[in-house]
Nucleic acid binder design. Sequence first.
DNA 1: ATGGTGGGTTCCCCA
Length: 256
Amino acid sequence: MRIATWNVNSVRARLPRILPWLSEKRPDLVLLQETKCLPEQFPAEEIEELGYNLALHGQKTYNGVAILSKQPIEDVVRGFGDEEFDGEARVIGATVGDVLALCVYVVNGQEVGAPKYDYKLRWMERLGTFLRERYDMGEKVVVAGDFNVTFDDRDIYDPDKWRDRILCSTPEREALAGILDCGLADGLRHFTDEGGIYTWWDFRTRGFQRGNRGLRIDHFLLSPPALAACRGVEVDLEARAGDKPSDHAPVVATFE
DNA sequence: ATGGTGGGTTCCCCA
């Protein structure tokens, strides 16, 4: 089984890249972030024609998450069930086979010290609480998405430049570690200690084209049974190249 | 190069 996470930066704008990618790669389960549309605006028919079932959680203009699955999708959950946070469509979860999947789009935070930064830290704390309260880590739990945080300096092309900046600050990293505290592991780091593996490259600085100037902020967090079944986590760099890409590459985890 | 590009919306916000 292969599970992918991909921040597509608008599912409608990205459809010419998403459809061929689904046809070619045929992932079993796909977790999308930043769909940026209401459920009724989602290009459902085109994706269903490729053999996927859908579960959607969207809003106008911003955010939006979705689950695409070859297998039936059961027990769909949208949001934390906490009105303080659920005005934004950032979380959708479901059961697919024996996998409990949660698709997350963590708050970006704008810049360190901004009001949105404080909101980001509180949002991440709430995600940790949600996971502790609602998930049995003895099951195959896969929490994946755009976390908008690097784990450490191996995840940054230029750590000195990014030191203490948004996506890289110590409080954000501590908040991310707090999410893992319930028993999840960084899937990619189970397989490699190498740096230089990135999932996002800034459009504005043309970081992808100008020498792989990226950050790793899209992650697979795995419970012990999910980690035991995982055979690899890889970034699909081809999907970040070419015409009209998202600023994020898909990350694909393979399971036995 | 404290800018830039890209997506959605509306005369600007967000990333």
